[in-house]
Write a protein that binds this DNA or RNA. Structure first.
Lengths: 189, 189
DNA sequence: AGGCCCATGTAATCTGTTACATGATTCC
DNA sequence: GGAATCATGTAACAGATTACATGGGCCT
């Protein structure tokens, strides 16, 4: 039941449509939760039925009419309660880590390709996060923004996302180096 | 369908029972995947039925008899195929990040408590990972072990887990500092 | 005597993914 | 003319969590 809280948290700062939410939640952008469009449309419908958010039609000339949502008082109260409640430990589930775990028993040539793909992906995300952070803090220095800026929640989660991807990239590069070295030394034996 | 690959990868280095696997996969130990005991028992049964692993009874004097499993040839072949195949991007799903995202709109006193809990948890994991790594490499230096050691897969994934927890801890501490500062400056206004 | 660890599961429910469906507009 | 974006869903299925069930041995 945490998806609903993630949706509420995402709608705190701005009214968004299901489509816009989906864009924010798709892999690579949302730095605090991930969800598919189908999940989001379903969750929005449930949240609205329970009165935790309210929708409002926005007619556009060139684009289809959309419905944007904002959090209601009961919705904010629910989030408040959620934030105070116990936090469950986060879990790791990553295909690529499974593959590296098995590295000693399988051919590593393809694995090195997978690592390269991910490294490229990580680089893209790093650039994206850096520009998002810059957009939020503007001219201000980071510490100054965190002391006195408004909306530091999104800034902090984005910062975590950035550091996560930087660490990923460093690890991908190291793993690649190690696997490559071992391949060449083995081949020349 | 990735749980099965994670199980296969875990069984590569040693024969394990369902119970032992569950211990390795419970939150806090498995550094490449997470799964509950129920999931694991079910998956082991399926894998055995499909001939990807084989079980063997081990009678113990003081403990109940257990069944330990090892990967078969077809199982290894499946893992090989999996490792070569496309890797799907990993997704983030963390309660605590959702809570921090909402930090500007809710009372942060409880949130600071949650951050402290997680920080303590992270410290425990860091110590655990450090001793696991030391246990694997023994007397050797890290780079030397990664160059010539056997079983570097588990070492690399453990290394990623360690760095992940270190980054978590640093971020928890920073977020706590920021939220605390903002509370006190607001209170004295 | 009570609680924890070892050891293995079943059943019900909830969550998440994949495939399918529709239709207009904008960009190349 | 074809692909991508905007905009919103339904339906079937796969994956994961929670609650329940059982039973012996070890430790305090």
């Amino acid at each position: 039941m945490a998806l609903r809280h993630a949706v509420l948290a995402a709608l705190l700062d701005e009214e968004l449509s299901g489509y816009q939410l989906a864009k924010a939640f798709r892999t690579g952008v949302a730095n605090f939760w991930h969800a598919s469009p189908q999940q989001l449309y379903a969750e929005l419908a449930k949240l609205e039925a329970e009165g935790l958010i309210t929708g409002r039609e926005v007619v556009q000339e060139t684009r289809p009419t959309k419905r944007v949502f904002r959090v209601t008082e009961p919705g904010l109260a629910l989030l408040e309660k959620f934030t105070a409640a116990e936090t469950r430990p986060s879990v790791i589930r990553d295909d690529l880590l499974v593959k590296v775990q098995a590295a000693d028993h399988v051919d590593t040539a393809h694995l090195i390709d997978r690592l390269a793909e991910r490294a490229e992906f990580a680089e893209t995300k790093i650039r994206l996060f850096e520009s998002l952070l810059l957009g939020m803090r503007g001219e201000r220095a980071e510490d100054e923004y965190l002391r006195r800026g408004e909306r530091i929640g999104p800034y902090l989660t984005c910062l975590r996302g950035l550091e996560f991807e930087r660490a990923n990239l460093a690890w991908y590069e190291r793993a690649t180096r190690v696997l490559h070295e071992r391949r060449t030394t083995r081949d020349h034996r």
